[in-house]
Amino acid sequence: MVSLPGFSFRRWGAWSPAMFDAQGWQAWVREETSLNASEEMAPAKAIPPLLRRRASLPGRAALEVLSTPMLAYADQPIVFCSRHGEVGRSLAIQQALAEVGQVSPQEFSMSVHNATPGLFLIARQSRARVTAVASENRLALSGMFEALSWLADGAPSVILVFCDAPLPALFQPFTDNEPACFAFALEMMAGNDYRLVHGDPLPPGTQREKGTTSLSLLRFVLDETRNALSLTESADWQLQRLAPEADCA
């Protein structure tokens, strides 16, 4: 069994169309409501309009959660995680190249995976460090590995941000799709609330997660009744919630 240093999540923020506050997300955790697949753009009003206009649908959602007062962003390193990233732009660029032979410089400049955190840091005039991660169904695990690396490197805390949106129709038949546009951010620091474990048997009653796991991570963190989350289809990696230590008498 491999066990990595423990950690905690402190502040968090999340956005999806028609999900306005923490109560809404708690209702989603209890499965009383589901995410809305509309193409509504996140407001991201804290980002100057000249920068905000460059963000895509999932990018705007990420800007919204990074700039929410709930997160109180203070120039921590950012681990930006997105399964599909700017695939909508990449497809539009390729179609434009095939059809008219000319691509949009603006679309091209924003098609890289780290474009969204770049916009956020330009808006804040921050030189904070960013890691951008893309992974299929191990995204939550890969993001937490990266964040643990920053913590091991001495960062007091790290912002882990996840965002994605439904795929362009052309790609939808080929893979699991995201249910809606969403973004969420978690402030992660050394602590004793969670740990990543490899090779432990899953506790009885723990469901194996299929497909994308970033929303599964948010659901798990917000649902304090659960004590383990499988992070891979083979369930070899899991995130465990640790029982609070008893106070010494």
Binding site: L50, V100, Q102, V103, S104, P105, Q106, S109
Partner: peptide
């Protein structure tokens, strides 16, 4: 208007089209 160099390129493409 506050536009930047990427906007200049974008505008060049749009004027061409």
């Amino acid at each position: 208007l506050g536009l930047d160099s990427i906007d200049a390129l974008e505008l060049g493409v749009a004027l061409h089209k």
